[in-house]
Design a protein around this nucleic acid. Sequence first.
DNA 1: ACTTACCGTAAGTCATCGCTTACGATTCGT
DNA 2: ACGAATCGTAAGCGATGACTTACGGTAAGT
Lengths: 106, 106
Amino acid sequence: MTYQDAITALADPTRRVIIDRLRGGALPVGDIAHGMDVSRPAVSQHLRVLSDAGLLTVTPSGNRRLYAIAPEGVGQLRRYLDTLWDDALAAFAQAAAEKAKDTANE
Amino acid sequence: MTYQDAITALADPTRRVIIDRLRGGALPVGDIAHGMDVSRPAVSQHLRVLSDAGLLTVTPSGNRRLYAIAPEGVGQLRRYLDTLWDDALAAFAQAAAEKAKDTANE
DNA sequence: ACTTACCGTAAGTCATCGCTTACGATTCGT
DNA sequence: ACGAATCGTAAGCGATGACTTACGGTAAGT
């Protein structure tokens, strides 16, 4: 449910492939697994992890289950990276300023 | 060097602690490891991974080595998440539109 | 009703990864 | 020059995790 679960979930290459396949919209498990180099149960396990991390939503539709990317989950991770980005830029700018000051003193 | 390495590096909790400690600016290894619940060599190994992922820069300063967050590395990851965010929102909007259409037909 | 399709779960295996201890290399201080 | 400090690396161990096969359960088709 936190950004930490999200980043852990996205760390796996196979799960990133799954996410990429869902960019266009929701898909049933069979369609997701079709053409992938792992078995369908493996895909199911990955879908479980992604769902638990808040990155996917599940919508049972008769026989099948449709998985789709959950914007909020991605948003959480995005916010975390935004703060990290801001801090990194600020620290970088300050370091550059001090460096310039030292260079002026030589 | 890619966003994939970055996301893999950030998946580890200990490495995220390290990153958080560097938000204020560059620090030597000893200062980073001080107060953490893992040994200093462990921190060194994590710093190696973060550097290889392009998330940190190293600046040898005499006896010590200063590690700082590399804005570009964070930026790469941020761009990936931005595209994912855009696609997720678009797919979500389209799904909502179709859902509304179906509801109107009942 | 019976078969087929779709999907999640359990059990077990194998690789990967994070940690510790021990060691070597380089630099600072005296 | 010698001892102390800072740091990276190697080796080894334990745990986590990703995968496969096998199975059960539910819905759709005929």
